[in-house]
Amino acid sequence: MPTSPQFYRVLTQLCYWPLLVLVTLWHSLPSSEPASLPTSLSLLFWVLPLLFPLTGLVRGKPYTHAWANFILMLYFLHALTTLWTHPDERVWAALELLFAVGAFIGATGFARYKGRELGLGLKKLKDQD
């Protein structure tokens, strides 16, 4: 695997932006389920969390890349659940899973290697004494 922070930053961007577009399109389409949420509420619930780390991801901040993974796990779990329970939405869910996993790997790699490059990180207990 590459150890260049730039590789992981590009991977994050190549997966994060399509995930944002996919989620927006998917949840703005009318649903065939009779008890579905209103479109505006569905968009608020699914798109808003992706907007929280947006500034830090664009600016290339390692800390933001690290905590954005917690948000990406929501979409990972949603995709897995949808793949299992909604056969008619499997294409959407498979794309969501692909983009969420790619963004997760990219954000993790960028946070790790850029953090090392900047000298950030947790001090080991034996180094504190």
Results as ranks from 00 to 15, higher is better:
L95E: 07
L77K: 10
W67D: 10
A68S: 15
D88Q: 12
R59L: 15
S4G: 01
L54S: 13
T82Q: 13
L97A: 03
D88I: 10
H78R: 14
A35R: 06
S40V: 11
Q13R: 13
P87H: 07
W17H: 01
P5R: 04
H65Y: 15
P30C: 00
P34Q: 04
F52H: 10
P5T: 06
E33H: 05
L77A: 15
S42Q: 08
L11C: 05
L83E: 11
L80F: 12
Y8E: 08
T55C: 05
T24L: 09
L97T: 01
W17E: 02
N69D: 08
T12S: 14
F45S: 06
E96F: 00
D88W: 11
I71D: 08
S4Y: 02
T55R: 15
Y63Q: 14
S42W: 00
F70P: 01
W92E: 11
L29S: 08
L48C: 09
Y8D: 06
L41E: 09
L19A: 01
P34D: 13
L77N: 15
T55A: 10
L11Q: 15
V21H: 01
L80K: 10
Y16V: 08
P38C: 00
Q6N: 08
Q6E: 10
A79F: 04
W84N: 14
Q6V: 08
W26P: 00
F45E: 13
D88T: 14
H27R: 07
Y63G: 02
P87C: 04
V10L: 13
L51C: 12
P2L: 11
P62K: 06
L11S: 03
